[in-house]
Design a protein around this nucleic acid. Structure first.
Lengths: 209, 209, 209, 209
DNA sequence: AATGAATGAGGATTCATTCAT
DNA sequence: CATGAATGAATCCTCATTCAT
């Protein structure tokens, strides 16, 4: 960000610019996302745009961040209502919430995903960043019921879920909204979780295990 | 393709152009993949290039296809040696083979994936095409041992595996070559497969389940 | 100047702006000398800057003038101490003083010179303005000892000295501080001066010369 | 140069572009020398221009070089006719030739000088490059008649002459074409040269000096 | 078949300047 | 007096594509 918005006015400007970008992305695809077009669509002059963003890429990055933050916020409030006890319903709800985050403005998400992907030469990390809080929520709630996933296990599970959903979003698959899709995802996650036999409860005293 | 390469020379030219493109992609990234650069690198004039490809996109498409064909060919010969009997080793071998297909020339794969993704406005299909033969091989060999995956199940499993591997390739994750990664993928797949109890059929009454 | 700084505060503001400009010029070169940057560096808003200068060029002009005035002031006080009698030492001292004026803040001088040069489409005059007082000082003191230089002679001598020094400053030549350089300049000036044989007048007949 | 002109056609193109640039410089000053304007004036599209020059600066550099080469060539053929014997006439002729090089297309020279000056952050050398061959010619012909100038002396003499002439050209001084101007320059140069007393010739054998 | 010179619409970006607050 | 958000003409440059040779 080139200039920290001092006056309230400029904050709105930044917001307007980002929203305009999102709309263009949504309606006309990434190729149409030129700086001049953004400015025109936002109703500002190109110069104003460059007051706040050092270059085109920064706009995309800001948009990606904004979109991410939004979805994450939604995700977290919804996940907070997660029932701690039974694992499978918890997973299902998490999945459902996660899927919900992908609804609406596919074009935007799609473009953002692409743009984000493109700009990771080697500093790739947040490739599954949306799925991560989901997994953490599950882990937090179901700790002790499952063997912890190793590093590789976590990595694969996160990317697997994210990959499946992302693909569906990308391909605008009709499956995306269905219960069967949700069910399959739940199975995917549950299949990775290895339950810890509940016996210890029964033998609170003794030469355990 | 503007001109079907009937003569051997023409075929070689096309091949040279595609190889040059792949190398540029690998070495200098997608931004450097301009038609003039391709022509120069291939040792042809830009005019010649346009004798064989109607436009830049066609080159990318041809490259993607070529790369796809190559990997597929390798995949299929290797999968042919799959042991029919025991499911888990079969899955493991399939996974290993699949992973092998992703080794080498990451930059090219990466760029091709991106370029391919970009050019699917709504006609998205081949998003998991590499994983498909793997799944078919497993299904062919282990049919009867598992409940068939439904449409959604198939879809999710394919994209999940492809997504995980693709992410690792994209991020150049150090996990990519490890056994733990392979193991996690095997678990991912096995977790989705619901074994059909083979004996119950023969023993309809008995000490059930 | 858009507004004559009557109050002390205004004067300080103008001074601050000019000093900020000089510093930017010195540290970052002419390309960095944008109005916004000047304002920022001076700690004023761009609007304030335009309260005092009608446009960017005026700032440059004011800077050039200021710099000129400064050097001239120094030059004049130092030249005032010039010993009237012997011509060569007088010339040497004048040269030394002149050279002294070029020390320090080369970047600024350089940039100012360039900027000033650029803005003289046809009204060029002050091209040797710094050397002029030097020559005048010499002439004032040594009048009668030398044939007066003609218009062309004056012109050439001024530009010659100024040119040599300016070049050295521009090229940041290591010669600039050396005695040999000073010596050469003295020779350059002395070579142009044609002494008037002082005695012949008093000894109209005698062992001449 | 981005592309070495293979076909003869392109050589002409480069020449046309440079000539167009020179004309714009001459007629409208440096500010008007934009890439698009050059292209338009040359009768080519902007793309063509960039086939041959990597950026605007390269055009200026090429022009400067071209102009330099031209003047140098003229200078050298004329200096070749220099009479070896008597020093002063030799100097006068050299000066005259040198001055001749500055006639015509002042705007171009002016702009080129400025542009060249601007682009010497610290690698400044050729600041007097036109005067250098002149001095060499004189030195070659009059060796033995004068004490050799030291490094500083050469430096100063070159820049002094170049400076005076350059100033006159810059200021479009009416003196430029006059004999008085030429005469003053000759005196400037001659004043720097310290003749070696011709006596040694008379004492070919003896305790010399 | 091959060449490569030429094209030019269109993109990103800068920066002096204005004016409502 | 001061602010700083907004302006937009103008600049440099790219690159897919064509077509005469």
């Amino acid at each position: 960000m080139r200039k920290s918005p001092v006056q309230g006015r400029s904050q709105a400007t930044v917001e307007t610019i980002l929203e305009a970008s999102a709309q263009i992305l949504h309606r006309e695809g990434e190729a149409a996302l030129t700086t001049n077009r953004i400015a025109a669509h936002a109703g500002f002059s190109i110069g104003t745009l460059y007051q706040y963003f050092p270059n085109r890429d920064a706009i995309l990055a800001a948009m990606a961040e904004r979109e991410q933050r939004r979805v994450l916020a939604r995700l977290e409030t919804e996940l907070a209502t997660l029932d701690p006890a039974d694992p499978e319903p918890a997973v299902r709800q998490a999945i459902r919430t996660f899927l919900g985050a992908f609804r609406g403005r596919h074009g935007v998400r799609r473009a953002i995903i692409l743009a984000t992907l493109r700009r990771l030469p080697k500093d790739a990390k947040d490739n599954a960043s949306l799925a991560e809080p989901m997994l953490e929520a599950i882990e937090a709630r179901c700790a002790g019921h499952f063997e912890p996933l190793g590093e590789a296990g976590r990595y694969v599970l996160l990317r697997a879920v994210a990959g499946a959903v992302r693909s569906a979003a990308f391909e605008r698959s009709p499956l995306l909204g269905t219960e069967a899709f949700e069910e399959a995802l739940v199975r995917l996650v549950m299949g990775m979780l290895r339950p810890i036999p509940a016996t210890p409860r029964r033998l609170p005293e003794g030469a355990g295990n």
